[in-house]
């Protein structure tokens, strides 16, 4: 197991804890993490939130985008342009039936649909968009979205 695998699974692990888990020195772990951050291998640490359990109005959509790639820079320039919008949470270049996949978040379906129509669809060289709304999130970043169950392990322990 590596620092990266452990941190990907739990970003809150402290250098001291990582040192215990990997049988290394805390100082060495700190240095290694600093280097991984400096190199841009580790880009950040975030919490996974199930917004459905909160009052927040919230909707996510997957947008399939087809584009005409630009001369010299291919898809990069368009993708980077899309990344500027804070509503856009994820941008992938895809193989298959469309070119760019975008995850967009908004308060309502209408807000997201308008964002697609008024912003994404208007970007030069975007030829078509298809919007798919997420109805329920079952698993994200390797984590299953469900309430912690009751601990039933005591029943049989001797």
């Amino acid at each position: 197991m590596t620092i990266l695998e452990l941190l990907e699974n739990d970003g809150r692990l402290t250098p001291k804890e990582l040192a215990v888990m990997l049988d290394k020195e805390t100082g060495d772990i700190k240095k290694e993490i600093e280097q991984l951050e400096a190199e841009g291998v580790i880009l950040g640490y975030k919490a996974l939130i199930d917004w459905d359990k909160t009052d927040r109005e919230y909707v996510t959509a997957l947008i399939e985008i087809k584009v005409i790639p630009q001369r010299d820079r291919g898809f990069d320039e368009i993708a980077e342009k899309i990344c500027h919008y804070p509503e856009v949470k994820t941008v992938y270049l895809m193989s298959g039936g469309f070119d760019i996949a975008v995850l967009v978040e908004g308060k309502t379906m209408r807000e997201v649909a308008l964002f697609v129509a008024e912003k994404l669809a208007l970007i030069e060289s975007v030829t078509s968009t298809a919007t798919h709304f997420v109805l329920r999130r079952y698993k994200d970043k390797g984590v299953v979205y469900k309430a912690p169950g009751k601990d039933e392990r005591g029943e049989g322990s001797i």
């Binding site: 197991m1 452990l6 692990l13 001291k16 804890e17 215990v20 888990m21 990997l22």
Partner: peptide, 14 residues
């Protein structure tokens, strides 16, 4: 085994 053991080890020290 390796994964679970590393988790136990962390908890052991805490």
């Amino acid at each position: 085994i390796e994964y679970m053991k590393s988790q136990y080890n962390r908890r052991r020290v805490i």
